[in-house]
């Protein structure tokens, strides 16, 4: 892939990051259970604008669940999560948190991009239609504008030739790049990546990481659940190690990967590095 100029991807949708380093995500004492299974046991995390946070940890540690709580795809049993200064999924009534109206939650989710492990492209829509669907339906963007923006986005993720192709005819790497473009088209202030390369054949991982690297350089705020340690070290501002439903260690990726403080971090890293 050719190297895009700075701000190519975000500029394509008119979504240049604001200056300042205010808090985008503030999660406090987040608890989540599936029935009797206590998955998150008090997670605290703050993410600042333009920060790239990489969540690592063994499977079952709650990384993905926590990520899904950030845009309220999962309800939480205790604690609070604020995105852009607003409680997500809940509102406060007489000191208690009650589930917010669906419309409000949807509006908040529109500002949070999400990229899934299994892409989750809409199979009945072409690459372009996948991208313009939500901007037209949710943001009420005029269709002509949406199409133009989507075409630019597709070009900049290297898929100009695939505009009118259905997801089934795309490789995994191509699908994931469309999925990233789809998230970008909503001009999010934050993008959550849930193991974006885990379902890919090895030779396709690079093309997806390239796009993510580019996004990070352009100043997109990102939380990435990933086992790509090279990517984490190179692009991540902070690595966050989770185990058994809590964050056990966080710090600069370079530092953590070479000198982990916690034994469990050490054990985990020794298995995957």
């Amino acid at each position: 892939m050719n190297v895009p100029a700075p701000h190519d991807l975000l500029e394509a949708v008119g979504n240049l990051p604001e200056s300042g380093d205010d808090l985008i995500v503030e999660a406090t004492d987040v608890h989540k259970s599936f029935g009797r299974l206590h998955v998150l046991k008090g997670v605290n995390l703050t993410v600042r604008r333009r920060e790239v946070v990489v969540l690592i940890g063994p499977s079952g540690s709650g990384k993905t669940t926590f990520l899904r709580c950030i845009n309220h795809l999962e309800r939480i049993q205790q604690g609070r999560i604020c995105v852009n200064g607003h409680l997500i999924g809940y509102r406060e009534e007489a000191g208690k948190l009650v589930e917010d109206r669906e419309r409000n939650t949807a509006r908040q989710r529109a500002e949070i991009g999400m990229v899934f492990q299994r892409f989750n492209l809409f199979p009945h829509l072409t690459a372009l239609e996948n991208i313009i669907e939500a901007p037209i339906q949710v943001l009420r963007l005029p269709e002509a504008d949406a199409r133009e923006m989507a075409a630019t986005l597709l070009e900049r993720v290297g898929l100009a030739a695939k505009t009118n192709v259905y997801p089934a005819q795309l490789s995994g790497g191509q699908q994931q790049r469309v999925a990233i473009a789809r998230a970008l088209a909503m001009r999010p202030s934050l993008i959550l990546f849930d193991e974006p390369t885990s379902a890919l054949d090895p030779e396709m991982i690079g093309e997806v990481l390239d796009v993510m690297r580019e996004l990070a350089h352009e100043g997109m705020t990102m939380i990435v659940v990933s086992h790509e340690m090279g990517f984490a070290r190179e692009v991540g501002d902070r690595a966050v190690m989770m185990d058994e439903g809590v964050i056990i260690e966080e710090g600069s990726p370079v530092e953590m990967f070479s000198h982990p403080r916690e034994e469990r971090t050490q054990a985990f890293l020794s298995k995957i590095l």
């Binding site: 795809l73 419309r103 949807a106 509006r107 989710r109 809409f122 939500a134």
Partner: peptide, 14 residues
């Protein structure tokens, strides 16, 4: 696939 509903919701759809 439930992932379809989730993807749609994550894009701000009700």
């Amino acid at each position: 696939d439930p992932g379809q509903m989730e993807a749609a919701k994550s894009l701000g759809m009700t």
